[in-house]
Design a protein around this nucleic acid. Structure first.
Length: 289
DNA sequence: AAGTACTCCAACCGCTTGTAG
DNA sequence: GCTACAAGCGGTTGGAGTACT
């Protein structure tokens, strides 16, 4: 059986795009748009390419306002922060970074940020160890104990200012803390003691509904180690449902009765710290298994 | 200078999701 | 509700470029 091919592979060119092909595709789309049908587009545009290939080329390279080149520290911070919140949902992360594509961010993560994170997580860690093996907790701890000049250190003001400036709403990472201490969670001993729990856990809201904030794509319990796309666990489905809320219903619907039982925006940074470092036996640290 | 190892990124593959009929 | 198809997505790969020995 198997899946039917999306196009006639025999008559389709593969590999790098030539400048001529780029020009054809760009010209066609600028004139006629995509028409909502990528499958038919290459034929109409006179290209011997798969529709998927055209779509990818357009979205990742030819589309106007695409930003190429170095990622700024601020972008790094945002990517890192969102990764901690929702995992490898590159398209969602890309939506928060105007001009960046999911592919771009994914590549950037895999080639740069992953290593930075591993270095922070454990300087002696082997290169081939997957970033998934780091926990949200350790990341946060490292993050917060780093100097503010670190590319991977966050400030609530940094993130807030970014979103206020660009998007008004940040559904996934919003801190209302006014403290300049720049930490989401303090790296205190109580959190350290819970690291093993967090290794295979999701961070849960303080309420009993046990909805998922998001996972750190970590650990076997999460079973999302290699592919979120193919991950069929219910946590991921839940994240997707929440994201749907975010983008479909807006921020205010997102947290209400959702992740935290109330709007996360209503929490100050200190309260968030408390939530995270609170009683290890509570539902806050909830091991799915 | 030549060979090898490593890095980066464009592009591909195949699975999931959305939707029209 | 079911099926088929297209779009979207995320993981993976291949090759070009660069660094190292």
């Amino acid at each position: 059986m198997g899946r039917a091919p999306c196009c006639d592979k025999a008559n389709v060119k593969k590999g790098p795009w030539s400048p001529e092909e780029d020009a054809k595709l760009k010209e066609y789309i600028q004139k006629h748009g995509t028409g909502g049908n990528w499958i038919a587009l290459p034929h109409k545009a006179g290209l011997k390419r798969c529709g998927k290939s055209c779509r990818l080329r357009w979205l990742n390279y030819l589309r106007p306002n695409i930003k190429h080149g170095e990622f700024s520290d601020e972008e790094d911070r945002i990517i890192f922060s969102l990764f901690c919140s929702i995992g490898s949902r590159w398209s969602v992360i890309a939506a928060q970074l105007p001009g960046r594509t999911d592919n771009d961010i994914k590549n950037h993560w895999n080639t740069k940020l992953k290593k930075k994170m591993m270095a922070m997580h454990n300087p002696s860690v082997q290169e081939d160890q997957k970033p998934h093996q780091a926990t949200l907790l350790t990341v946060l701890q490292n993050t917060t104990s780093s100097s503010s000049s670190s590319p991977l250190s966050f400030t609530d003001s940094t993130i807030n200012s970014y979103y206020h400036h660009h998007h008004h709403h940040n559904p996934l990472v919003s801190f209302t803390g006014s403290s300049s201490s720049s930490s989401l969670v303090s790296g205190n001993s109580s959190t350290s003691a819970n690291s093993n729990i967090l290794d295979s856990s999701f961070i849960m809201g303080p309420t009993q509904n046990q909805q998922v904030l998001g996972n750190m794509v970590g650990g076997e319990a999460a079973s999302c180690s290699s592919s979120v796309g193919s991950c069929n666990n219910k946590q991921m489905c839940h994240v997707k449902a929440e994201l749907k809320n975010v983008y479909g219903g807006g921020l205010h619907n997102y947290h209400r009765g959702g992740l935290w039982g109330e709007n996360l925006l209503d929490y100050g940074i200190e309260e968030i710290k408390q939530l995270i470092s609170s009683d290890s036996g509570s539902n806050f640290l909830f091991d799915e298994n």
